[in-house]
Design a protein around this nucleic acid. Structure first.
Length: 562
RNA sequence: UGGGGAAUAGUUCAAUGGUAGAACAGCGGACUCUGACUCCGUUAAUCUAGGUUCGAAUCCUAGUUCCCCAGCCA
């Protein structure tokens, strides 16, 4: 891809400016980035920002991007997450080629470097308990105190480190720490932990190790080993940068990558915290990581969101260093924009109301032509069956309509899309006064949807035939959280939206939705929204997820409707 | 009271000493066999106070507000 067009693709931001400047100054011949997830949860839309940034920059500037698992803590990492992450990054549209790496690939080298630091008198084994370490670390405003073990000899440190590695000590007995400055204003520099004892089986290295490197000790060196030029991470690592640089300055690394930080993504009505998402899954507040209400890539995918919509959204929100909360309406916009172009149009009645056309003959009815996409003739058309008995949307009828209501009501005429004009003649109710059926008449001259006499109707409504429409379950999703700024803290369940899932079990859909090799493709249910078949569907039970509703200015005006 | 960051329309992002602009959201209208799409119009911002300068969102000084850091998590 040519650099010029690629830049248009990704937009401009301060990180791309830095990369461009580095390339211009010939500090690097090739840009190399990396996306470094820890496999302890599923990827969410916040990660998508980082993925698009890292892979996007690599593509735009003709470099490469590595997928590197930051698997330094076997106590919380699992193979399921590793597989899910690879699947999701690919689905989003990115390819790491041969560059699938793991921090664990470097465990040997990292360990050698730990010995290098020990031999240089820049690291020591500390026997303090976690509690003692915490106390001696000081506070935000008071300096820490040196550990009583800080001045052990190189020989003793080396011996202890090797025995830690050999598994001689129990979990937590000792740690290896860098000897930097216990009085630093930056707490990351108060003798950070390099290695901790962890007798745990690692998904890749099994039980080969009894000690595992910390994030700080592993990350920058992994970047250096892989020849990463720009190590892009989120804001909370900003004050780790001096430490990142300290390791690279004090170790015989092959390169010195530079770390840059950007603000992570936040969205209204969502919580993007691994802790909260994990709890949601674990405690059954949602039905798994791919629940369509989840902000995970797996959840968005199942809900029917196309990857290009996510990429477009990420491009629109930009990259900066100021904390921000993006309006979820922006995501919806990108989803609608992507789907509007491609989704075939279909008719489905979510909450059916029976209509009998009194002057239409009994019998098999007739076939009418409906286009599949109004803006794309190549999408072709299909036949839909019209008959004496139909279903329309309950919302499309009101017995006592307000004056801005254009749809069906007693005595009014509307168009049935691609079919005929009908007029409501009679309302049938049950003993409770509930409307259960409409008796209407149709105008045979309006076949196809136009009146020869040129008369107009104020509304066109969708419908399905009572005889050949298929029953379906439709799942409507609303925000998982009821507040625009859910806490995400301890009592986050209090902010959960009890209406986040609405199941409509009595929907009727046109037959075209039940067949076809492309049954998994997103569709637009006309006048309602974009939907996709859920994987819970079976041969005799269709299930659809609402990806996103159509913009609905009428609902906004009257202030109702789900 | 330590260290590190950030403040521009309602929201997100531009403007890199020279006309404060875009997208989303909102509002109004046109079009329409989807109250969709599309199109047109429109409301709306430089955290505060000083200073430098012909000219400041941008540079300087002082302040204000918000975010992050005291895991053997990442």
């Amino acid at each position: 891809m040519a650099i010029g067009e690629a830049i248009a693709e990704g937009g401009r931001d301060f990180i791309r400016d830095i990369v461009q400047a580095d390339l211009d100054a010939k500090r690097h011949s090739t840009v190399v980035t990396r996306f470094p997830p820890e496999p302890n949860g599923y990827l969410h839309i916040g990660h998508a920002k980082s993925i698009c940034l890292n892979f996007g920059i690599a593509a735009e500037f003709g470099g490469r991007c590595h997928l590197r698992f930051d698997d330094t803590n076997p106590a919380r990492e699992e193979q399921e997450y590793i597989d899910a992450i690879e699947r999701d990054v690919r689905w989003l549209g990115f390819d790491w080629g041969p560059h699938l790496h793991h921090a664990s690939d470097y465990f040997d080298r990292l360990y050698e470097w730990a010995e290098v630091l020990v031999k240089a008198g820049k690291a020591y084994v500390d026997d303090q308990t976690p509690g003692q370490m915490r106390v001696n670390r000081g506070t935000l405003t008071e300096p820490g105190k040196n550990s009583p073990f800080r001045d052990r000899t190189v020989e003793e440190n080396l011996d202890l480190l090797r025995r830690m590695k050999a598994g001689e000590f129990p979990n937590g007995a000792r740690v290896l720490r860098a000897k930097i400055d216990m009085a630093s204003g930056n707490i990351n520099l108060r003798d950070p932990v390099l290695y901790r004892i962890l007798h745990a089986s690692h998904p890749r290295t099994g039980t080969a190790w009894s000690i595992y490197p910390s994030y700080d000790f592993a990350h920058g060196q992994s970047d250096a080993i892989e020849g990463i030029t720009h190590s892009i991470c989120t804001l909370e690592f900003e004050d780790h940068r001096p430490l990142y640089d300290w390791f690279l300055d004090n170790l015989p690394v092959p390169a010195h990558p530079r770390q840059y930080e950007f603000a992570r993504l936040n969205l209204t009505y969502m919580v993007l915290s691994k802790r909260v998402l994990t709890t949601l899954v674990r405690d059954g507040h949602v039905n798994g990581w791919d629940d369509p209400r989840m902000p995970t890539l797996a959840g968005l995918r199942r809900r029917g969101v196309p990857p290009e919509a996510i990429r477009d959204f990420i491009k629109r929100i930009g990259v900066a260093k100021a904390n921000s909360v993006v309006d979820a309406a922006m995501l919806d916009f990108s989803i609608r924009e992507a789907l509007n172009k491609t989704a075939l149009r279909r008719m489905a009645v979510l909450r059916p109301l029976k209509v009998v056309i009194e002057n239409y003959p009994e019998g098999p009815g007739e076939e009418l032509e409906a286009v599949n996409h109004p803006d794309n003739p190549d999408a072709g058309s299909r036949k839909i069956r019209f008959g004496r008995e139909l279903y329309i949307e309950r919302d499309d009828f009101m017995e006592n309509p307000p004056k801005k209501f254009f749809r069906l009501s007693p005595g009014t005429e509307v168009r049935l899309r691609y079919a005929f004009f009908i007029t409501c003649r009679e309302v049938v109710k049950d003993d409770k006064g509930e409307v259960i059926e409409l008796r209407c008449t149709y105008d045979p001259a309006t076949r196809g949807g136009n009146a020869p006499d040129g008369r107009k109707v104020k509304a066109t409504i969708h419908w399905v035939s009572a005889v050949d429409s298929k029953p379906a379950e439709v799942r409507l999703y609303n925000p998982l959280f009821s507040k625009p700024d859910p806490t995400g803290g301890e009592g986050f369940t209090a902010d959960l939206n009890p209406q986040s899932l609405e199941v409509l079990s009595g929907a009727r859909v046109e037959p075209a939705l039940a067949v076809g090799s492309n049954a998994a493709d997103p569709v637009q249910f006309e006048r309602q929204g974009y939907f996709v078949r859920d994987l819970d569907s079976t041969a005799d039970r269709l299930v659809f997820n609402r990806t996103v509703g159509l913009r609905d200015t009428f609902a906004k005006e009257v202030g109702g409707k789900s």
